[in-house]
């Protein structure tokens, strides 16, 4: 089961309907142990719903999800113990410090952690006694990731982790995600930044209106497109505006 090539997540014919519309329309895919798997798609494509059904936060209308061999419906609690969850734009208790919050979540998982050790991993040691409102956007996202590490999960789900961040903070977060992945943690993330998917993900699923329209490695997806005779209208430059921006402003984080 711990074989590197086995699938850690199996999603089989998943559908999820709400009162007035069907958000996910019968999708199947699997995530390999140890990979960074991206779910791409425009807003409203069903990315978050797919993620939340895997996280056991929403019940599938039909279909089956297996996580590390556990059915998410019948083994909700065991699944929760082995996953780390970062929600899109989630807040925190405003009156609790980062250390308080880490201790609180450790108790919710029934584990003991060293809050300072975890904060060090996400470069937030100097903010240990700060309140969440005092954090910048990038720091807040890093802290959300710190909370996902508490129960030393096998899989981490990140829902649009870099939305709203400046380029420096985004690069910093990518490095952090890669570092966590190198320790053998499987990562499933959603994004609508193609550059991010290309940089981080071994494989990506592209979703549109509740369906998966493509699933492969970024390279293969590009090759398939080129095979169809696709040509970029403008000539490929050796650098783009982002490169200019980073060159001028540096890679260093801008945080108070």
């Amino acid at each position: 089961m711990s074989d590197i090539n086995t699938n850690i997540i199996e999603v089989d014919k998943l559908t999820k309907s709400f009162a007035d519309f069907q958000a996910v329309k019968g999708i199947s895919f699997s995530v390999k142990r140890g990979e960074v798997f991206g779910i791409l798609g425009p807003n409203g494509a069903g990315k978050t719903t797919t993620l939340e059904t895997m996280e056991t936060l929403q019940k599938p209308t039909s279909g089956k999800i297996t996580i590390d061999g556990l059915d998410t419906l019948s083994h909700q609690e065991q699944v929760k113990k082995i996953i780390g969850v970062q929600l899109q734009s989630a807040g925190f208790y405003p009156e609790l410090t980062l250390i308080d919050l880490l201790n609180l979540f450790a108790s919710l998982y029934g584990v003991k952690v060293s809050p300072t050790e975890i904060l060090k991993q996400v470069d937030l040691l100097d903010k240990a006694k700060s309140y969440p409102v005092r954090l910048s956007g990038g720091q807040r996202q890093r802290f959300s990731i710190a909370l996902t590490l508490i129960n030393t999960p096998k899989i981490i789900f990140l829902d649009e982790p870099t939305t709203g961040l400046d380029p420096q903070a985004r690069i910093h977060l990518w490095e952090m995600i890669e570092k966590i992945n190198k320790r053998g943690v499987t990562i499933v993330l959603t994004t609508h930044y193609m550059e991010e998917a290309q940089k981080l993900c071994q494989r990506v699923a592209i979703m549109d209106s509740g369906k998966i329209v493509a699933l492969d490695t970024p390279d293969n997806l590009i090759k398939q497109l080129l095979k169809k005779g696709f040509k970029k209208k403008i000539e490929v430059k050796q650098a783009d505006l982002e490169d200019v921006f980073i060159d001028l402003t540096g890679r260093n984080l801008r945080e108070e």
Partner: peptide, 9 residues
């Protein structure tokens, strides 16, 4: 905040 807590056991 509650939703995040519900992602724990």
């Amino acid at each position: 905040v509650i939703k995040r807590m519900f992602a724990t056991p």
